[in-house]
Amino acid sequence: MSRLLLATTNAKKLIELQRVLDGLVGSGRMELASLAEFPDYPEVPETGLTFGENALIKAREGCRRTGLPTVADDSGLAVDALNGMPGVFSARWSGRHGDDRANLELVLAQLADVPDEQLGAAFVCAAALVLPSGREHLVDGRQPGRLIRTPRGTNGFGYDPIFVGEGQDRTNAELDPAEKDAVSHRGKALRTLGKVIVKELANLPG
């Protein structure tokens, strides 16, 4: 059975990645590994200027350090009125990495004078697969929508409570996991990458 590393230390993101990939690949086809299995694994600086660059940086490092085929993603919120920001800085927009509440509140504060009809935004994800052979794959996923000013819902993480996807009347944080996976940027990217993973891992020794 092949092993695949999910190169993230974000517990909520790991659950989401595992849920999508398990459904695509099946537990009998491969074993999912996380960075928790590698206690000395260093934090990898996200120095890229795009989501794709950051996803590849993390996937390459995971593969190099563990010898396992590695999946990594980078994702964030692109707000039209903020010229596509916070973008790759989404997780540390407030200056403190991973402080979801502070990041969300800062974005809302920056949009205080923007009319409601101009609160267009999108969640964007780039997901990468890097293999020990050196082969690399990079795919993108996008969920267009709009922002609201009052957070709603307790599911999800990050900016989910203030994001309503196109065609939806609930925020991403009000969707159950299956509903969110079906429409989210990460779900779209990983379903595309999952097809590549199945093909690539079928050619690797178990």
Rank of each mutant, 00 (worst) to 15 (best):
S2R: 15
L6W: 01
L6H: 08
A7F: 03
T8K: 08
T8C: 10
T9W: 05
N10T: 06
N10I: 07
L14F: 13
L14Q: 10
I15Q: 14
I15P: 00
R19C: 01
R19A: 15
R19L: 08
D22R: 10
G26W: 08
M30W: 15
L35M: 13
A36K: 14
E37T: 00
F38T: 01
Y41A: 04
P45K: 13
P45R: 04
T47W: 04
L49F: 07
T50S: 15
N54G: 00
N54I: 08
A55P: 06
K58N: 11
T66H: 14
L68A: 05
L68D: 07
P69Y: 09
T70L: 13
A72M: 04
A72N: 11
A72Q: 00
D73C: 09
D74V: 11
D74F: 11
D80G: 01
G84T: 02
G84A: 13
M85K: 12
G87P: 09
V88S: 06
F89I: 00
A91D: 04
R92M: 05
W93G: 02
W93M: 03
H97E: 12
A102S: 14
N103M: 10
L106A: 05
V107W: 06
V107D: 05
Q110D: 03
V114K: 09
P115M: 13
D116P: 03
Q118W: 05
G120E: 12
G120T: 13
A122P: 02
F123C: 03
F123D: 00
V124L: 15
A127W: 04
V130C: 15
L131K: 01
P132T: 08
G134K: 04
E136A: 10
L138G: 06
V139P: 07
D140T: 08
L147T: 05
I148V: 15
P151E: 10
P151C: 06
R152M: 04
T154F: 02
T154N: 12
P161W: 07
P161V: 09
E166V: 02
G167Y: 04
R170Y: 06
T171V: 03
N172M: 13
N172I: 01
D176H: 12
K180V: 01
A182L: 10
V183N: 06
V183F: 05
S184V: 12
S184R: 02
H185K: 09
R186S: 12
K188L: 12
K188P: 03
A189E: 00
L190Y: 12
T192D: 11
K195G: 03
V196R: 11
I197P: 01
V198Y: 01
E200S: 11
A202Q: 14
A202C: 05
L204K: 03
L204G: 07
P205V: 07
G206H: 11
